[in-house]
């Protein structure tokens, strides 16, 4: 593909700070490709992040960008979207950022069906602080704070978003780069709250503690455990054990908050004129 994505990047801010073999560059590229393929107005697109490795991505992207506090990206973005509903608001978050410290904001944004696109760079570890377990760390896996193996059960973030009333949830991985771009495109196009769980490898802090030393080992680990949605629905719970579905898991239509709000404003202003 001869297409240049440079115009979406702040070339002077590159190279990025991510470790060799990190998957975050692949997810960032998928976002940029999705934006390009959708032809979004770059003046009207805002990218917001929280804290962590993923949170550094907006600094490399040539849009209005906001690098907020830990866990709060969706809450900051809610202010932006409510203020200016005409903006495309994309949130880049991580698994610790979105599921632990920011979990409350995630479920409430889903419940409100506010037209935000949340892309979770899910490497199931706290990378920036060098490898503590997150709410997405698989049970039994090793992290600096689970030296005897992770005792707790992880979240399924897509299920969480769906349970909270989110109208779009999808999952893909850095192994499925083309699919990842496609689901992000669909997420951005979706009118309402959209969530993408983008599995991304952290060979440095997750892989090397878990016998997945190279980026390739980790991507193969994604490949081996992922199941296309159609096949997934035919599998028994025993067969599903240790695996996960990829693709668009839910897509429904429901009134979107800024539209509902605009209708209220119109109604009240008409009443005021009467």
């Amino acid at each position: 593909m001869a297409l240049s994505l440079d115009k979406y990047l702040r070339m002077s801010k590159l190279p990025h700070i991510w470790c060799p073999g990190c998957g975050h560059g692949i997810v960032t590229q998928a976002i940029v490709r999705a934006i390009d393929e959708l032809g979004l107005d770059t003046d009207k697109t805002v990218v917001v992040s929280g804290i962590g490795c993923s949170a550094r991505a907006p600094g490399y992207l040539h849009f209005d960008t906001l690098h907020t506090t830990h866990g709060r990206a969706i809450a900051f973005a809610t202010g932006i979207k409510m203020a200016k509903p005409e903006l495309n608001v994309i949130i880049i978050t991580g698994d610790g950022d979105a599921a632990a410290i920011g979990g409350n904001h995630l479920i409430h944004a889903a419940r409100r069906n506010l037209d935000l696109t949340v892309i979770c760079f899910d490497n199931n570890i706290y990378g920036m602080t060098s490898g503590q377990y997150s709410p997405l760390t698989p049970q039994g896996s090793y992290a600096t704070t689970s030296p005897y193996g992770m005792l707790e059960k992880p979240f399924d973030l897509c299920n969480l978003v769906m349970g909270a009333g989110g109208t779009f949830a999808a999952r893909s991985t850095t192994y499925h780069a083309r699919q990842l771009t496609n689901v992000i495109k669909e997420a951005i196009s979706h009118k309402g709250f959209a969530f993408v769980d983008a599995l991304s490898q952290c060979p440095t802090y997750f892989g090397r503690r878990n016998k997945l030393r190279t980026p390739l080992d980790m991507m193969n680990w994604f490949k081996d455990r992922s199941v296309p949605l159609r096949a997934w629905s035919k599998m028994s719970p025993e067969e599903q054990e240790g695996k996960f579905p990829v693709g668009v898991l839910t897509k429904t239509q429901a009134p979107e908050l800024t539209e509902v709000y605009a209708q209220l404003v119109e109604k009240l202003q008409q009443r005021g004129e009467d």
């Binding site: 900051f76 973005a77 202010g79 932006i80």
Partner: peptide, 11 residues
Amino acid sequence: AAVCGASLAGM
């Protein structure tokens, strides 16, 4: 957080 975001959007 939302107040900060809205302020950046010019509100």
